[in-house]
């Protein structure tokens, strides 16, 4: 074989290795079979370009690019500053619908960050390729820690400022619980009292039942008509001899059948 041929073959092999390596790392794919979707986040929690995208735990794409957009707003008018473009393989495209949710998750022993897509409902429409969708911002551990630290500080300050009150409240609660325990013990010991208490509760139950029955009746149409009738009657009687009416009401009373 000629020297030129060997050199040429070596260069070709190198070129093939570079392309193969890029394809293996998903940096270059001439046979791409995926759609792109843009996700909006305010906090992307460590996602990087090339991070995997999974639907129901299976890899279906990757994060293609991450861009900062100061003027971006989502469909609800909320300001979102990060636009993460992801690819979703066409084989999984059917399962991702408009009500699908996009989470940032953590996997594996090395803490690999990825975007998880929850499957959508069948009655919802498909996503629009190239469309913008709101992703779920992951919780910020630093923010939570800061808030809990501040809360703990405030509680501590409050306790320090009202130390006497707090001690007195705790003592009162302690006394209350002790007294309640004593009362319960006494009730348990005296069987008669227990029966009396039972009968009292029974009577109370009956009374409330009766009241409910009466108020139920008052809500009927007949009752409403009767009340309106009495109201009209009284209105007419107002201009008559007030003394006689007064006497009538006071001495005779009203004998009317309401129901």
């Amino acid at each position: 074989m000629k020297h030129e041929t060997k050199v040429g073959l070596l260069f070709l092999a190198t070129f093939a290795l570079i392309i193969g390596f890029a394809y293996f790392l998903s940096s270059y794919n001439p046979f791409s079979d995926a759609n792109e979707v843009r996700l909006l986040f305010n906090f992307a929690g460590g996602i990087e370009e090339g991070s995997p995208v999974r639907a129901m735990g299976i890899k279906v794409g990757k994060v293609k690019s991450i861009e900062f957009d100061a003027n971006r707003k989502d469909a609800n008018g909320e300001e979102v500053k990060l636009v993460v473009t992801i690819t979703i393989a066409k084989k999984a495209w059917d399962t991702v619908r408009e009500d699908s949710r996009f989470f940032i998750n953590l996997a594996g022993v090395i803490g690999e960050k990825y975007i998880e897509i929850s499957p959508g409902s069948l009655d919802k429409s498909h996503l629009t390729p190239g469309g913008y969708y709101r992703g779920e911002d992951p919780p910020r551990i630093d923010q939570l820690l800061s808030q809990s630290y501040s809360l703990a500080g405030k509680i501590l300050e409050m306790v320090e400022n009202n130390e006497g009150d707090v001690v007195s409240i705790i003592k009162n609660i302690d006394n209350l619980v002790t007294n309640f325990n004593k009362a319960m013990e006494m009730l348990t010991k005296t069987g008669g009292s227990k029966n009396e208490l039972g009968s009292l509760i029974k009577n109370l139950n009956q009374i409330t039942g009766d009241i409910a029955h009466v108020s139920g009746k008052l809500r009927t149409k007949d009752a409403d008509e009767a009340i309106a009738l009495i109201h009209r009657l009284l209105w007419r009687l107002d201009d008559l001899d007030k003394k006689a009416i007064k006497k009538f009401f006071q001495e005779e009373g009203i004998k009317a059948k309401l129901f």
Binding site: F24, Y28, G108
Partner: peptide
């Protein structure tokens, strides 16, 4: 290969 892909980028080559 899977572990390698997490660490390695094409820019390294």
């Amino acid at each position: 290969l899977t572990t390698m892909r997490v660490f390695v980028n094409f820019q390294d080559l």
